[in-house]
Simulated assay, not measured.
Amino acid sequence: MTVREALSFFKEMIGGDQDKVIQDLELQPLLDKKISQLSQGQKKRVSIAKSMMLDYNVILMDEPTENLDPEVASKLRQRITQLSKDKVILYTSHNLYEARELGRFVIVLNEGKISTFLPISELRTSDYEIGIRASEDISGIVDCTKRGDYFVIKLKDPEEVNPIIQKIMNKNIKIYEIKEMSNPLEDLLR
């Protein structure tokens, strides 16, 4: 099945605005590709499109930016922020940077029970490290160490990530990947 056929199938099954999700998630270049030929990130975008076809009041999203390239992930986060103005979005993530950017509350489930429920602004962690894979050495721009393919930066708070990314991009260096090198959300389970 092609992406176009899959979205048409879902439109027939559940209804909704197929053209809007194609535009919102920039799926035009993928429409004639078979689902089996898509990358994991492209499959994720098609899956998200399916869930956004109807105008639900509550939307559940399970790590929607996983496997997406940074530019597509950024656009999706912007779309989620827009949607959250009128809707309730329950968003699972292991990415504290993303959780802080998108969320107002954090709910932590531990062994099937809520162990933490608090405003995300009150979330404190002891350590936060990100790894950046870039087209050039960024050690002259930011304080970092090299670990494998990644330039690793230790931060006090995830809110420090955006200014660092802007600083790197202002030097015309391409960023291929940003990932957490440790998971500070694990602190909540201790």
Rank of each mutant, 00 (worst) to 15 (best):
M1R: 12
T2P: 02
T2A: 06
V3M: 12
L7N: 05
L7K: 11
F9G: 02
E12F: 07
E12Y: 13
M13I: 11
M13L: 09
I14Y: 04
G15R: 09
K20H: 02
V21A: 06
Q23K: 15
D24W: 08
D24M: 04
E26Q: 13
P29W: 00
L30G: 06
S36T: 15
S36P: 04
L38F: 08
Q40A: 14
K43D: 02
R45W: 01
R45N: 03
V46E: 10
I48Q: 09
A49E: 03
K50P: 00
L54R: 13
D55C: 05
Y56G: 09
Y56L: 11
V58N: 04
V58F: 04
V58R: 01
L60D: 02
M61S: 12
D62W: 03
E63C: 09
E63W: 08
T65R: 11
T65V: 15
E66L: 10
N67R: 12
L68C: 09
D69P: 14
D69I: 07
P70Q: 00
P70T: 05
E71P: 05
S74N: 12
K75D: 11
Q78I: 00
Q78K: 10
I80Q: 05
I80H: 06
S84Y: 05
K85V: 13
D86V: 01
V88Q: 14
I89S: 06
I89K: 04
L90M: 12
Y91E: 03
S93Y: 00
S93Q: 00
S93D: 01
H94P: 08
N95H: 03
L96T: 07
L96N: 04
E98R: 09
E98K: 01
A99I: 15
E101V: 10
F105H: 15
V108E: 09
L109R: 12
N110W: 02
E111S: 12
G112C: 07
P119G: 03
S121Q: 11
E122D: 12
L123F: 13
L123G: 04
T125Y: 01
I130D: 03
I130G: 03
G131P: 02
G131Y: 01
G131N: 05
I132S: 04
I132L: 13
D137I: 14
V142M: 06
V142F: 07
V142P: 05
D143P: 06
D143F: 06
D143V: 06
C144Q: 08
T145V: 13
R147W: 08
D149E: 08
D149C: 01
F151Q: 06
V152I: 03
V152Q: 13
I153F: 06
L155N: 04
D157R: 12
P158M: 14
E159R: 11
E160Q: 15
V161K: 06
P163K: 09
P163F: 00
P163N: 08
I165Y: 07
Q166W: 04
K167I: 11
M169H: 13
K171T: 01
I173R: 01
K174T: 02
K174Y: 01
I175W: 09
Y176K: 02
E180S: 12
S182E: 06
N183R: 11
P184A: 08
P184L: 10
L185G: 07
L188I: 10
